[in-house]
């Protein structure tokens, strides 16, 4: 069985879903005697952000599971260890992946009550996916609120990498319809879906309780918090200036301890 159990760390690693659509998952089993009534699904960001944020996600999962939460991490189709070598045809493919992962987590944890957490695009996808299914709480870590800005950030990041490494750099003319984003092959419809992400447009509460953690105060986040409150959601909001691990060199091995602690504290106090 693909399971190991070390002090404070008990995991199962597996693929779930149908063959060519199967997704990679890791389930963190809480120690006996500290069980909670909610499980937590960690929704990753994508590609560079997911790779660089991997260490922090693992730490977050371990810390939550030690407190009794069954926790699952997974990779979207076309990312990480999951099947697929490109983005899905539509962004909704990744929202469907979140729903599949939620079912997998419910099945493994035997708990119906589920919470989501997501960094950057993972936060946006969690919020959008939660609109169509019952979710108790969502924690957003520096969430992407507007997709057009986010795509610009990724493209500038790609240009920055090339500037840094290439002496014979090709022309950096800005491509309005890029076919790739930081190593991820995308098509036009997917790109449009990414650009059209707008969390300010959601009209139904995605969860009863939400937590937003950002690194520096941003007007966009403040407006989003107000929007969520107008939808009747209990929203907590913290600013914690920790390393932005999703952009940092992974070899620095930074763990944003204060951010993780903020998230863990919120989950453990909200879902006793």
């Amino acid at each position: 069985m693909n399971q190991h159990s070390l002090p404070g760390e008990n995991i199962e690693a597996f693929y779930f879903g149908e063959n060519e659509k199967s997704l990679f998952g890791i389930y963190h089993i809480p120690p006996k005697g500290v069980a909670r009534n909610h499980s937590v699904l960690l929704c990753p960001s994508i590609e560079q952000e997911a790779i660089r944020g991997h260490r922090a996600y693992r730490q977050l999962a371990v810390r939550l599971s030690r407190l009794g939460f069954p926790v699952m991490r997974f990779d979207y189709w076309g990312t990480g260890d999951s099947k697929g070598d490109r983005a899905p045809d539509r962004l909704s493919g990744w929202q469907d992946n979140i729903s599949s992962a939620m079912n997998e987590l419910k099945s493994r944890s035997k708990l119906d009550r589920i919470c989501l957490a997501g960094l950057r695009l993972g936060g946006a996808l969690a919020t959008l996916a939660a609109g169509s299914t019952a979710v108790e709480g969502i924690a957003l870590w520096e969430p992407v609120i507007k997709g057009d800005t986010y795509v610009d950030v990724l493209l500038e990041w790609q240009r920055d990498k090339l500037r840094y490494f290439l002496a014979d750099m090709p022309s950096l003319a800005v491509d309005d319809r890029p076919a790739e984003l930081l190593g991820l092959a995308i098509n036009n419809a997917f790109l449009d879906d990414m650009i059209n992400i707008d969390l300010m447009a959601i009209k139904q509460p995605p969860a009863k309780h939400m937590m937003i953690v950002e690194h520096q105060p941003q007007d966009e986040v403040a407006a989003f918090k107000t929007h969520l409150q107008q939808l009747g959601i209990d929203v907590q909001h913290k600013t914690v200036d920790d390393p932005r691990v999703w952009t940092d060199d992974p070899d620095k091995a930074l763990v944003p301890n204060q951010i993780l602690q903020t998230l863990v504290t919120w989950f453990s106090e909200e879902y006793k």
Binding site: E47, Q48, I51, H54, R55, T79, G80, D81, D85, L182, G183, P250, D251, A253
Partner: peptide
């Protein structure tokens, strides 16, 4: 590759393996 997990930078290990 350094401390990058088994997918490799830009996921090149996954695609190379396949």
């Amino acid at each position: 590759a350094g401390l990058t997990h088994r997918v490799g930078p830009n996921r090149i290990y996954v695609k190379l393996a396949r």
